[in-house]
Design a protein around this nucleic acid. Structure first.
Lengths: 143, 143
DNA sequence: GTTATTGCAAAATATTTGCATTATA
DNA sequence: TATAATGCAAATATTTTGCAATAAC
């Protein structure tokens, strides 16, 4: 929890109880890419008064300061990611999990530069398909 | 309009009046990446009885048959694209336009293969930033 | 004590569903 | 005529907003 507080101070975000808890959840579930709803559902167990508004306010503040990233793959919801280093994602169409994939980013050097005259500020790449685990379940049930 | 009908027949999609009009709109606005709402707003001028339901039904049918692609970048809406050849996109954070960018697709050869054990079915890449046109406006207003 | 944050209620936005009506082959 | 598509109304899902109560420094 010390480190959590430090992360907030570092980004000049006032460390309220709710913010600490949201960030703590993100840190403990790194690689999970939760939705606002998923964060809320978990935190309400510990903080019965927390609201969706606060979760959204908090995530917006974190996004603004670059503490987290918003991952938009599904088209109907934003998933959040504490890992802000540029990396690619995989969305499983079966189980809806988002998984980090370890492939090199081709366009990393374009950051801040122009492509076709447009100034590049963010570079995103993602795959969709069937994840390792769902493939295993599929092959087991077909046997 | 002949070509539009042919495209639907080819994909075994019954060519109703509404579907023809939606596809015609997509063809005439290629590169525009409209939302369902944008398509509806345009078509209602010509077809006063058309409904959002039909627009969504139609787009779903097109998506299913691989006639169009859904582009998910903004996180709160799906944009539609008649160009189904694998290509990358640029979203302007100022004007919200989506623009095709002409860069090579890095992972094209991974289509249908495995990465980290996950089966790759779709490969997506996109950039966010400020588009050529908005950059021009910005530099003009700062003078 | 002042200012920013929280959280409720309601609104806004995007999409989906149930179902009766209508159009298509 | 049988089947599939349309379109209205209502529901659902996600996110945002206004504002009074509360907490942080």
């Amino acid at each position: 929890m010390k480190k959590i507080k430090y992360l907030l101070n570092e980004k000049a975000i006032k460390p309220t109880y709710q913010r600490l808890k949201v960030l703590d959840y993100m840190a403990k579930n790194i690689g999970n890419h939760p939705t606002a709803e998923m964060i809320y559902a978990e935190l309400i167990k510990e903080i019965p008064t927390i609201s969706m508004t606060t979760v959204y306010n908090t995530l917006s503040a974190f996004l603004e300061k670059g503490l987290i990233n918003g991952v938009t793959i599904t088209g109907t919801e934003v998933r959040y990611d504490l890992n802000v280093e540029s990396h690619h994602h995989f969305l499983c169409k079966k189980c809806n999990k988002i998984i980090d994939v370890d492939v090199p980013c081709q366009f990393a050097e374009k950051q801040g530069k122009l492509i076709d005259g447009h100034r590049i500020e963010e570079i995103h790449g993602y795959f969709k398909g069937t994840c390792k685990n769902c493939l295993r379940i599929l092959s087991a049930s077909s046997r």
